[in-house]
């Protein structure tokens, strides 16, 4: 079913259905949603689906990642030039670490590296994940945005939003393997079945990229302003957020064929998956989180701060 026809009306109907209890029972736990503009982190009770408190950051936090040992939820504050280490169960701030312009960040699957993209400063920093010591800085033009590792942790791929490129950094030799044009304003990037999928935000499509040399093998149309993409927990489906179209598109991960389009207005950005099957999505321009039931298309929304960006769910939190 495609919801492109009068999507707002349908969204309201599905929202109404959700409010009437048509959706599944809400998962327990807490969600952390970063409010970039107000420099805070909203803590949301997942069962009651309401914000319960805000954790002050410093200037402009954007993204967050769980440490490999699961003991720290690490928030990057770009303008504040620091990483905040939170207790993932409570949200208490444990410590702060000075790091230049931490925008998007991620640990390698082998837990050896932490790569931090400095979007404003056109740099990609590779840190030792055990010590948080900077190992090497790669000046890359321009606007390093999102990143993904190869499954063997040998490579990290970084989208360069300002120059329409994707850079491949060899983590064994600590050198740039290739740097190729892949599509207009590339943002989210995902490793899928031996290929890279890059959301080209200046277009309506994903670029399918060969990891060995950066060749563009094809394009998959998803919607205007394709911004970010995520695997479902079972890796069978890829959900793509389209920023301009205001939609989330589900693709079959094996065939890359569209399965369904959901109308999600408000600037859909990051997402995470709850154990109950629902998808939590930050709505960048609507001060809300959307909770999408992919089975029914029902959406519930939760009021949060002024500019929700990164999100992480901890269903095990007390």
């Amino acid at each position: 079913m495609r919801l492109s026809l009068r999507p707002r009306l349908l969204l309201l109907l599905t929202l109404g259905a959700g409010l009437l209890g048509a959706g599944p029972a809400a998962a327990a736990g807490i969600a952390f949603a970063i409010d970039s503009a107000a420099a805070s982190i909203s803590v949301v009770d997942m069962a009651r689906q309401m914000e319960i408190r805000r954790i002050p950051a410093l200037r402009e936090p954007h993204h967050l990642v769980l440490s490999p040992d699961g003991k720290d939820l690490i928030v990057g504050d770009t303008v504040g030039n620091q990483l905040l280490f939170l207790d993932p169960a409570t949200g208490d701030i444990k410590r702060r670490l000075t790091v230049a312009d931490p925008y998007q960040l991620g640990f390698s699957p082998d837990r050896k590296w932490l790569v931090v993209n400095g979007l404003a400063r056109n740099q990609v920093d590779v840190y030792d994940a055990a010590t948080y010591k900077l190992v090497k800085r790669f000046p890359l033009s321009s606007m390093p945005s999102h990143l993904v590792y190869s499954p063997d942790s040998a490579m990290v791929y970084v989208t360069l939003q300002g120059t329409d490129r994707l850079a491949a950094i060899d983590l064994n030799t600590l050198s740039v393997r290739w740097n190729q044009v892949v599509g207009k304003t590339p943002a989210g990037v995902l490793w899928n079945n031996g290929k890279l999928l890059v959301a080209a935000m200046g277009t309506d499509s994903l670029s399918v990229v060969e990891p060995a040399d950066g060749r563009v093998l094809g394009r998959i149309v998803t919607g205007k302003g394709a911004h970010n993409l995520f695997h479902s927990p079972d890796k069978q489906i890829i959900y793509v957020n389209n920023r301009v179209a205001g939609t989330v598109v589900a693709l079959d991960a094996a065939t890359l064929k569209p399965l369904r389009t959901y109308a999600v207005p408000g600037g859909p950005d990051d997402m995470d998956f709850a154990p109950d099957g629902r998808i939590w999505i930050t709505l960048r321009f609507a001060e809300k989180l959307a909770v999408l039931d992919p089975a029914t298309g029902a959406i519930q929304t939760i009021d949060v701060g002024r500019s929700p960006h990164g999100i992480w769910l901890n269903p095990k939190a007390p």
């Binding site: 207009k184 304003t185 200046g202 302003g225 207005p265 408000g266 960048r284 001060e287």
Partner: peptide
């Protein structure tokens, strides 16, 4: 802040983003 932020969000979503997209300036979103 809600009414002002929502108004700014509306301007961004319905006026600026489509314009930036048409002009090929999405990097400035």
């Amino acid at each position: 802040f809600a009414p002002f932020d929502l108004a700014a969000g509306w301007v961004q979503e319905h006026l600026l983003l489509p314009l930036l997209y048409q002009l090929g300036w999405m990097r400035w979103e």
